[in-house]
Amino acid sequence: MSDTPYQHLRDLPAHHILGTGTPMCAGCGGLATLHQVYDILGEKCVIINAAGCMTLLSVYPCTPFHGSWLYTAMASAPAGAQGVRDGLDILKKKGRLSREEDLEVVVLTGDGSANGMGLSATSGAMDRNLDFLYLCYDNEGYGNTGQQYSAATPHAARTATSKGSLGYPGYKKDLFAIWAAHNPGYVATVVAAEPLDLARKIERARGLSGPRLILALAPCPTGWDFEPSASVEIGKLAVATGIWPLKEYVDGRVTHTKIPHPRLEVRDYLKAQGRFAHLFAPRENRKMIAEIQARVDRYWQKVD
C-alpha cells in the first residue's frame, strides 16, 4: 500500500467532485463512501446502478454526476456493466472512441442487490472476467424500503421485519468470501470512517483489471437508529471492535489492512445503535452479546 499517492490524511483529495443536493438521508454512510470513491476515480466513469437508496441520486432532471450514469434494475447491474464495457470496447476497436473518451465501468448497488437478487449476475460477470469495479454500500438491510432485513443484516439486529426480542435470527452473508471464491482481480472492505484506507484501496483497485469489489460498510442513521452526527463514530467503532475487518484480497491472498489492537468490546458498537437496543433493555441479554463477541473473537483468532 506504500505505492499509492495516499500516504497521509493530508494527501486525500481536497476538492470534491460529486454534486451536492442529493436526496440521501443526512449522515448517510453510503453517500460518504461514494463521494470519497468518486473523488479518486474522477468523472471519467459510468456508474451502473441497481435498485436501492442510491437509485434516487439521479432524479430527473437532477444528477450529482459529472460523468455518466445508467440505472438498470435490481437484479442485473453487472450485466449492464457487461453491455457498456463491451459496447465501449467495440467502439474503441472500430476507432469510434478514443482512449481519452474511454470510461471506467462502475457498478453501484446496495447490499440487497449485491447479496441477493444481483448475485447471479455478479457471479456471471466474474465468470466472464469482466473488467469492472463494483461498489457495494452495505447498510445491512433493504434501506430504501424502510430497512427490512436482507442477507447482509447482522445477527440480532432489529429491522422492520425482525422486531422481536431476539432481532434478526440469521447471520450476515460473507460476500467478501463469495467474491474471493471466484478468484477476481480485487476484493476489499472499506468504511468511510477510515478514509485513508479507503483511498489507498480505490487507488489500488484502479490499477488492477478484471472484476473488483469495494465492499463498504455504510452506517445508516435511519435504518440503524442513531443520530446522523454519529455516522463516522459508528464506522470507527465497527473497525475498532473488529466487527468490520478492513481487508483486501489480491492474487489469492487475503491481507488485513488494519488490525484493531486492542480490540474494543462489541457491546460498545452495539450499544451505540437503536437497532440493538433490545439487547440492553429492559434487561441486558448477556448471552446474546457474548455470542456476538465470541463470533468476532473466533474470526480474529484465525487472523492472528
Binding site: T63, W69, E100, L103
Partner: peptide
C-alpha cells in the same frame, strides 16, 4: 468521457 449522460433516471 467528456459527454455526461445519465440514462434510466428516476
Amino acid at each position: 468521457g467528456g459527454e455526461p449522460l445519465s440514462e434510466g433516471v428516476t
